[in-house]
Amino acid sequence: MAESEKNKAKLHFAYDFYKIMKDSDVTFAYEGEITHEITKAFSSLAESHIALTNESNALQKRVFHVMVESLQNISKHSAERKDEKSMFAGQGIFMVTKDDQEYNITTGNVVLNESIPALKEHIEKINSGNKKTLKELYKKKIKSGKLSEKGGAGLGFIDMVRKTGEKLIYTFLDLNDKKTYFVLTSTIFRTK
């Protein structure tokens, strides 16, 4: 009896999960390790999927851009790694929602508390910029910035905001005294 109740709950969970995804316009969701292979697979999956829609080439490319940068942010910056030494694979969630107006690309990953102030400052600086100042910031960063050992150029967020014309939406959720969950959404309007 207990066993069948448990099975029933499992099946109901699948349905509830499906409903939540439908209700929130989630078209794609993943939780786990993000490697380079996964980044390639997800972005080309989205690319071929979106190519079948009536979206403009420009919009298709922007979605692809934001996806790649978002996925690479997790693989390079997530503080949760199966293998501490693995440079190009981090744990996180990756989600795409889509409605009549927009695509939203959301990532979530663990960050160390000590990295929050710099991260916040970086995003706020980008969010307070306009087209012109972001262009200047991009030029300044690409000229002066050094690549991190993981090959990060520090340009991902700037590029996301420049490509979408939309500010980054983000939040930090407390986990414990060392770690925080960082959630970031980038919106791409379908009409622009």
């Binding site: 851009h65 940068e69 690409i142 910035g145 340009l155 700037i158």
Partner: peptide, 12 residues
């Protein structure tokens, strides 16, 4: 046709 931001630095 496409390059990511990390590549943009190397192109520079």
């Amino acid at each position: 046709e496409y390059f990511n931001t990390a590549s943009s630095k190397l192109l520079l």
